Computed example of a mutant assay.
Amino acid sequence: MADKTADDLFEAGVAPERRRGRGALSNASGRFEAYRQTVFDDGWGGDEEASPRLRTTVMEDTTRRIITRNTSPDIPFDRSINPYRGCEHGCIYCFARPTHALLGFSAGLDFETKLLAKPDAARLLAEELRRPGYEVAPIAIGTNTDPYQPIEKERRIMRAVLEVLSEHDHPVTIVTKGGLVARDADILGDMGRRGLARVALSITTLDSSLARKMEPRAATPTVRLRAITALTKAGCPTGVMMAPVIPGLNDHEIETVLAAAAGAGATSAGWVALRMPLEVQGLFAEWLREAYPDRAAKVLGMVRELHGGRDYDPAWGKRLTGEGVHAKLIARRMDAARRRLGLSNTRWALRNDLFRLPPRAGDQMSFTDLF
């Protein structure tokens, strides 16, 4: 079959009543699939029973390794953990959507309704940390899909992972839009006080209407601000990430978002520009034209200016912040707001020297354990 075009990939629209409370508008076949879905009216009329509202389904991921490595020169970590694949938050701009195509699913509604959980994550992590030659460095969590999405409340996979990291005195960084992170303030507070943990709450807007449309099942901005306060009070250094900044849509809120986060207890602030790899461009444009038809063309034009006239420039050093006039203006405004509010632009240094292997039943005691 010939390669699919952008138009091919976004023909599988889903009726509004079926996708209520979701981010994407469509569910086109994945880019690796031999066939594509096409929605059309056959003239027989609708059937509500045959077209129920989309529900979230969760499958189990039987991966044998839990730590993912990378060598990207423009991100500050070389290893990460993703307790889940897919994300029920449904953020329309999520750069991780295309990864669902690798599983045979759509980057559209499948990404937010067909989830995979890794129930053995904590056990696999403990095994990997014990491998001979393991070298300690902070593990980043929340780099692809959110560890505190709604299913974590029941599954508790992320909490189990944190328990393992705490037992091993292993450093960890977390980025999340989930207010559920405050549930783990007991673990994160203890680790934070020991120099082993830091958290960033991703807040894109304080406008509840925009938030509901753009990230429909993520925690509200108010709940995320409360999570910053809870973690800070518990002793865990906490910051804010305005990710993504979208020119013409939420960039006017830079100063107000940072001010609210500082007031909640955040001590640092960062940002990432909107990036639209692969299917994300079509999904975001489709959503934008429905949600904000009066400004869609302007926003898309400004985003392209951020990426050198392209929908997305994957070049290292450019993909996260963009380039050009809009990128420079955003960076200057962020710097000015940080200075005024006393927010840091530097990353907290975490301790690698505390790492240890906790004793297990049957382990031989060392000589020093006797004294």
Rank of each mutant, 00 (worst) to 15 (best):
V272W: 04
A211T: 02
E253P: 02
F95Q: 07
L278V: 13
T63N: 10
M59S: 15
A349G: 12
W44E: 08
A121K: 08
T220H: 04
A182S: 08
L231Y: 00
R85W: 12
D311L: 09
W271V: 04
K213Y: 00
R22T: 13
W271I: 07
P221C: 01
P359C: 01
R156Q: 12
G282N: 13
T321M: 06
W287N: 01
T220W: 02
S208L: 07
D41F: 00
S208R: 11
G265H: 01
E163K: 10
E279K: 12
D7Q: 14
D190Q: 09
M334S: 03
G308D: 11
P76S: 12
L283Q: 13
L25W: 01
R333V: 07
A160W: 03
T232C: 00
I81C: 10
A336P: 06
A200V: 10
E286S: 13
A96E: 09
T205V: 02
R159T: 06
E253D: 02
N345C: 09
Y134C: 11
L115G: 07
T57S: 14
K233F: 00
A273D: 04
L329G: 05
M302G: 06
M214S: 05
M334T: 05
L125F: 10
A230W: 00
A337E: 08
E33Q: 15
F371Y: 07
A269L: 05
D61R: 11
R338N: 09
I174T: 04
I81K: 09
A96R: 08
R65K: 12
R183P: 00
A50G: 08
I330F: 09
P314L: 08
T346P: 01
R360N: 07
L162C: 03
D313G: 02
T57H: 13
I157V: 15
S208D: 14
P16T: 02
H100S: 15
I254T: 05
T5S: 15
D7R: 14
E290G: 00
A137N: 13
R339Y: 05
V58E: 10
L188K: 00
H252N: 09
T143Y: 10
S51E: 15
R310M: 13
E128R: 11
L329A: 15
D311S: 14
A336Y: 03
A117W: 11
R79Y: 07
